[in-house]
């Protein structure tokens, strides 16, 4: 951790129009003072915040992102904030895979009446990010590597698999599948984490193939996985038609991306 002297974090805030944006306005009307580090974007509902927007913010080098919605049960759009919470928890998990502190993403609730709470949450979060230091200071790798990792996680969040899974979380846990079997939360969390890792690794491998054909060993070196793990991924990816063997070099097959 290299918390730099005089480091002033830049934080992006997504606020929903009906509760948290109104709460932020109320903080102003009440003159509650808080640090000037957050830049707010107004959205109608916190559920408008696509996980890829959060990754975009980090890829742009922002130090923290906060997403505030209405309190559970108070959402102007009934269930928007429940979706927000699930998506942001998923995004925090992928940040951990990237090697960033998941605490750089805050999801919380502020009502239109909670100006003081808004100011206090922003103050605490700014302090937290200040402690964490500039984006990537918690990581043990270089900036270029961070960019690659963020790109892979952004791709993973843009792919249908994780979006589909998180979109069905509520249904699977609360209503059950077609046979009425409900999935325990821990089991879902396990499946989610496995899927996040797989999707993330898959996209890291795909990215590494961006510049041309690579052997399993070369890929392993670039993405920081064991050859065994890379191979395991490649088998599935080949089945999905994402990669194929282009030629054999010596005794090692070289893989390339297929299609677009």
């Amino acid at each position: 951790m290299n918390s730099e002297e005089g480091f002033e974090p830049v934080i992006l805030g997504f606020l929903c129009n009906w509760c948290s944006y109104a709460g932020a306005d109320l903080a102003g009307v009440s003159r509650f003072q808080y640090p000037p580090n957050v830049r707010v974007m107004r959205v109608m509902c916190s559920a408008r915040v696509d996980p890829t927007f959060v990754l975009e913010a980090f890829t742009q080098g922002l130090d923290g992102v906060l997403v505030f919605g209405c309190h559970p049960g108070d959402c102007h759009y009934m269930t928007g904030n429940y979706q927000t919470e699930r998506r942001m928890v998923m995004t925090q998990k992928i940040l951990r895979e990237v090697g960033l502190s998941p605490e750089r993403l805050l999801v919380d609730w502020v009502s239109a009446a909670e100006g003081e709470r808004f100011a206090s949450l922003v103050s605490k979060f700014t302090e937290k990010i200040r402690e964490l230091g500039p984006l990537g200071s918690e990581a043990v790798f270089e900036k270029e590597e961070l960019v690659r990792r963020l790109k892979a996680s952004s791709d993973a969040l843009a792919d249908d698999r994780l979006r589909w899974l998180v979109g069905r979380e509520k249904e699977l846990i609360e209503e059950g599948n077609v046979f009425g079997e409900r999935l325990p939360q821990e089991e879902f969390d396990h499946v989610m984490l496995e899927s996040i890792r797989r999707e993330y690794e898959k996209n890291r491998i795909l990215l590494s193939l961006g510049d041309g054909a690579l052997t399993v060993k070369e890929m392993a070196g670039r993405v920081g996985l064991s050859t065994r793990e890379v191979l395991k991924n490649l088998v599935v990816m080949e089945g999905e038609g994402l990669v194929t063997v282009s030629h054999i070099e010596g005794s090692s097959p070289k893989y390339i991306k297929t299609g677009g």
């Binding site: 959205v43 109608m44 509902c45 559920a47 408008r48 915040v49 696509d50 996980p51 927007f53 102007h76 759009y77 269930t79 928007g80 979706q83 998506r87 843009a158 249908d160 698999r161 979006r163 589909w164 998180v166 979109g167």
Partner: peptide, 11 residues
């Protein structure tokens, strides 16, 4: 609200 957009698997 935009919930559908931010969650659409095909974007």
């Amino acid at each position: 609200c935009g919930m559908c957009g931010a969650g659409c698997p095909q974007r």
